[in-house]
Amino acid sequence: MKIQLPFPLMLLLWVSINTGCEKEITVDLPETTHKLVVEGSIETGLPPIVILTRSVGYFDPTDLATFRNLFVHDAEVYVSNGTQNVLLQEVCASQIPDSLLPIVTAVTGISEENLTAFDYCVYTTFNTSVWGEVGKTYTLTVDAENQHLTSKTMIHDPIPLDSLWFEVYGNADSLGLLWAILDDPAGEHNAYRWWAQRINRGPEGDPKDRTFVTPDNSVFDDQFFDGLEFEFAYDRGSTPDSEADDDFNIERGLFKTGDTVVVRFSTIDPAVMEFFRAVETQQLSNGNPFAAPAPVPVNIEGGLGVWVGYSAVLDTVICLE
């Protein structure tokens, strides 16, 4: 939901623009221990995919060698659906068949180009007995570097959007938001996540989006609309490392007439929603003097990160005036 409390940020913006000055400083941070970080997901009909990395000191080097060294290899990673407990294999991008790359891209959010260029390694399995099924709870166990991590997630019933359309945003010419109708089931605590990907090509002939993109506040729950049917809207968002022109000009955050957009909408665990909401809040409040820093509520016992079950439904919409 796009309505949030922006006034402290607006004040900050106002103050900074009008009177502020800024300088780079050196801060002394204490040494920190490296913790294991899980970025894992399992989706209906798809294999579990786990990326295992380490946390690093805030000002640790940021060169490519350091980046590659973040990945944790030779870990013992198990996924159980309650009856089957399967050891995942470490598969690097160079070993993944090209036909599976789009799936890995969809699940990890890493573009195919980056997957292959940096030979990302993920833990997964071709044993379909632990591929995602609606209604099942999946337990993840990781043992690596003398650390033991566990987590659980569930794949909930899918809740498709009732309808989806494009609408011009205010007075903006040919630019707008995607609107949808959600009919929330009554009597249960539902949490959701939204992604969108423009699958048409830009003026240079490149795909406008190489992967699904989550806008700010991509997760929400039905705390205030349990059992209601209502309309809501999302902007386009952008990837963290985007250098695309339309992420820096008037088109920023907006879809454009002529775009063909695939919307991915999924139910998620409420605990997972808390994790993503905290991550997104952290991105939005970085440097906000009014925000009190808070730890991100991970759902990984013994480590950091998130283990999430998705029950995604895809819809395609063509943006027409």
Binding site: L29, V37, V56, T108, V279, Q282, G305, V306
Partner: peptide, 14 residues
Amino acid sequence: PVSRYFIEGQIVSE
């Protein structure tokens, strides 16, 4: 923040 890690390409601070 004393350390950082990555989720979906975004830096998460600890």
